[in-house]
């Protein structure tokens, strides 16, 4: 009984972090699908979300909602500037060059935040207090509910945007075939810029809602980014349900592994899963393979 209850607890907190990985995974997929780039700076967007929010609250005493809005807008601006300054100047860049550039951007952002903000770890106050709620014998925090709620909203919004708005459809068109999209009058450059903006916004949102649970610091982006990537890989780099499932599975496995085996190896578990998937099903858990063109 005790074991079951404990397991239930691991699953709940695992699903909550998993939802965060899912959001980050979606943010990876958005850029990947419109550009073919895996943005190694994605985790920094997540970090910026939490850090800017806390900064606004402590430095300017802004109410939390406004602080969150500022953080998301600020990070979106960073994403857009990044695309303009570092991605756009390189026409026909090799994947290698893009990897190196996005890594460069990631450590640059991290370094600047460290310089401006210091190395301290800080916590964001929970959005609706910390009184635990009993669910099926296990306890849940109000923040967990925020996370699940926001994630659901994002999934719905994501789906609506990409399937029912002109801009969203245009972005999807770019991901299927850039040349053709260009021919029918879609400005591919604008769509790429937009994808960086949306992706940064989404990443920062993930960073904001997780910050009350895990604390935040200038260097949290690395791990969160990598795990989000792992979720996206599990979902086959799609911007849909596969990635969400991937995130939830990853979060749960990690939480169970940490609880049952050893918390020190928690991050190692995520990476072992990442490696296994890359080795066995690089096209994702839910997709069929494709043939590369020559």
């Amino acid at each position: 009984m005790e074991f079951l209850k404990e397991t239930m607890q691991f699953v709940i907190s695992g699903l909550a972090t998993g939802a965060i990985y899912a959001l980050i995974g979606l943010s990876f997929a958005i850029i990947y699908n419109s550009t073919g780039i895996i943005n190694f700076a994605q985790g920094e967007f997540v970090m910026l979300g939490g850090v800017i929010t806390i900064f606004c609250i402590t430095a300017f005493k802004l109410p939390i909602l406004i602080a969150v809005a500022v953080a998301i807008l600020g990070t979106t601006a960073v994403g857009v500037v990044f695309e303009r300054l570092a991605i756009r100047p390189l026409k026909n860049a090799t994947p290698l060059a893009l990897i190196i550039i996005t890594i460069g951007a990631s450590i640059l952002i991290r370094g600047l935040v460290m310089l401006l903000w210091g190395k301290d770890t800080q916590a964001l106050p929970a959005f609706s207090g910390n009184d635990p709620i009993e669910v099926a014998g296990a306890t849940m925090l109000p923040q967990h509910i925020w996370i699940f709620g926001v994630t659901l909203l994002v999934i719905a919004g994501n789906r609506f945007f990409f399937h029912h708005t002109i801009t969203g459809k245009a972005m999807r068109a770019c991901s299927f075939n850039r040349k053709a999209a260009n021919l029918v009058g879609i400005s591919v450059g604008r769509m790429v810029l937009l994808s960086f903006g949306i992706s940064a916004a989404l990443g920062s949102l993930a960073g904001v809602i997780i910050a009350p649970l895990t604390m935040t610091a200038y260097d949290v982006g690395v791990m969160l980014g990598l795990k989000g990537f792992c979720a996206a890989i599990m979902g086959g780099m799609g911007s849909g349900l596969g990635t969400v499932l991937g995130g939830l599975i990853l979060g749960t496995l990690e939480s169970l592994g940490a609880g049952w085996i050893s918390s020190g190896y928690k991050d190692a578990i995520a990476f072992l899963i990442l490696l296994l998937i890359l080795f066995i099903r690089p096209q994702g858990l839910f997709k069929k393979g494709e043939t590369e063109r020559v």
């Binding site: 570092a86 190196i100 550039i101 460069g104 640059l108 991290r110 370094g111 460290m114 310089l115």
Partner: peptide
Amino acid sequence: DMDIIVYGLLLI
């Protein structure tokens, strides 16, 4: 700690 900022700029 300036080094990682410089590395980032250099890489890009």
